[in-house]
Write a protein that binds this DNA or RNA. Structure first.
Lengths: 211, 211, 211, 211
DNA sequence: GATGAATGAGTTTTCATTCAT
DNA sequence: CATGAATGAAAACTCATTCAT
């Protein structure tokens, strides 16, 4: 009985894995708003109507991807921290460099709060918040290590600003050709900034508050 | 003849005004992605097919709204600067407080780069960039007034981060009920931060780089 | 499993049948360019959006009708040939008389090359060409039987002219009332020629080349 | 008074000329069914709604083009006849060669009876028939010159078949790339026939009836 | 007569979602 | 659970045509 249940569950997980993988692949070349359940199903061995047995909306799929990506980024940060010396610059470099290694997460973060979360069920959303709780915890802990003198409040403020910044900087450093052209029409010297550098610089200033 | 032309032009402007107004009203209660030209037309005395004589896509309408809002915010900042004393705190208060008076602009900024600009024609986009050029210019000038010692590069960096921050902070301080509930499920003490305060704090730290 | 697949396939065929039948009925009273998928769906128990699961454009439906009609005509010709004596006149009578029994095919042929084929996918078109290959083969074979001395080239030329003639003769012998009136305004003696007679006469002359 | 009327009329003719010219230009690159009054007006200095003062439908414009082209072809045939020796082959060469010099007429003839005439007013159509009456007359006269022994009926039959043939042969010798590809998929040796040669051959056989 | 504005009707196409099997 | 079929709703877009000026 129990064994069967486990079997079922693992089947469910397998299906979800397949759906997630398909969605991830699409997201590499398509925009969030252009991805539909139909499209996702097509990239899958599962038929469209069956997808509804696992996910209610495409946003719930994206929420699962977000979850993994947040935690994966967290792991990268921890790994890197273990290998790097302490120090403000080191911290900023760590964050900026690892963030740049997760382009999908960055892309997702720009629609995380304004779109994905708005289209999910409360249950799914709560589960997501629970799942990424370690991210918040770990990030705070790491900050405490790097900046032992900073107050809890300052650290939480900083984290809030870090997540905010990433969304905004990403959106302004991922312009399409047309956008760049239009900018250069007005200011011929315009060059699209680099995400990692821009984030590093911002973090460097913001961490001044934590020393 | 010329008089007629002027008449016609003013009709065009009137029509665009009406369309913009309808779009603005819808945007107060609806999300960007749920607004369609069909919906906008419905809130208008103009029929849908006629809308196409004034705007090709909804994004071109939003771009016009963005333009006005950016410039309107700029005016507010200038007005306020004239009345306030100099100083870093004063600047940050000015920006944060006036921004909070333009909630629609804030909401628009969160989709400005990732959606609106992507769906416009290059021509429309270039015209927009030209139109809001004074915004960039004025913002830089104001910063030079407040922070006379800051280099041009630092000022431009700061402006870039300001715009980035607004997008991110707004998205994280405009959660719907469901999002707040989910947060509180994990952390019962969670309170959604206030946009203006969060922005003020961030700016206060970032301006340290300009002194 | 297999049984189900067969069931499904037959459903597809059934649906296509229904769509084809509806299109055929419309084509009896309407012109090709006035028929739309919307109109076809209306004459069906199937909803418009579901039609797209079976046909991409109305032209693909017409191509299917064309296919059947060509092959049906071919069968009629073969049948009649079996019952008739040999001879040039007999052949011409056979072709003209059987063609007249397929008015829908004649009507379709007048838009076959200039419209229907132009709006189909290459795949669909290739499938069609394969499907009506027997028509070409059979027509050549019949000609070889009736005109054993004619070279292969002459026979192919003749077939090409036969198909050409049908298109043109049909268009000039299927005038609407208005067209006839206009003709008679200029030449009061004008009588619209009869398709079968006109075709017979033309074929009789053209077959002189095959003896 | 009269002078004014003449002025007006010539203005009307000028406008119609401009409209016709625009339509002709479009027809060089576009298909009949894709051309709209909107499109024609765009290629003109006349506004769309004003076009209705000169033509009711696009087909009436096409009818005017047809008229000119028929008469122009007739002139070419007469010219050439004056320069060529008599004889059956000479006649066929004349017709085929001059026809090939009027590709627009050929293209128009393929939709002349099945589309253009169907969408015109009776008045316009009657006027057209009157206008091209000389074409019929001249063509008969030329045939009588070349084939003095042929009966009036045979000559009229021949003319009927000539016009029929042109429509059909043109449609089968003006395939688009896709159509050719599909043909070659079934018969790799397929080569699209040449219009002028095909017409010449057909005429050569058909004229045997006139000797 | 000429024009721009406006409209309504039509068409294609796409999708989320439901349902019977 | 899985599936294909089916549907309804919506969105984008185009055009012929009318009308007031």
């Amino acid at each position: 009985m129990k064994c069967q249940k486990v079997k079922k569950e693992s089947l469910v997980v397998n299906r979800q894995q397949e759906i997630i993988r398909a969605c991830e692949e699409l997201y590499e070349t398509m925009e969030y708003e252009d991805i539909s359940i139909k499209e996702i199903a097509k990239s899958t061995s599962i038929c469209r109507s069956n997808i509804y047995n696992y996910y209610q909306t495409k946003d719930e799929i994206f929420l699962d991807i977000l979850e993994r990506d947040y935690l994966s980024w967290m792991e990268d940060i921890k790994d890197r921290m273990a290998r790097e010396e302490p120090g403000r610059e080191s911290y900023c470099r760590n964050i900026a460099a690892t963030a740049a290694l997760h382009p999908r997460l960055l892309k997702l973060m720009s629609v995380h709060y304004i779109a994905i979360e708005k289209n999910c069920s409360l249950e799914k959303l709560t589960a997501f918040k629970h799942a990424i709780h370690p991210f918040q915890e770990t990030m705070e802990e790491i900050l405490r290590t790097y900046f032992p003198k900073a107050s809890r409040e300052k650290i939480q403020n900083f984290l809030f600003l870090l997540l905010s910044l990433i969304q905004g900087i990403y959106s302004m450093t991922s312009l399409c050709e047309k956008q760049v052209k239009a900018m250069q029409e007005v200011d011929p010297d315009y060059r699209m900034p680099d995400f990692a550098s821009a984030l590093y610089q911002a973090l460097y200033i913001l961490t001044s508050d934590l020393i």
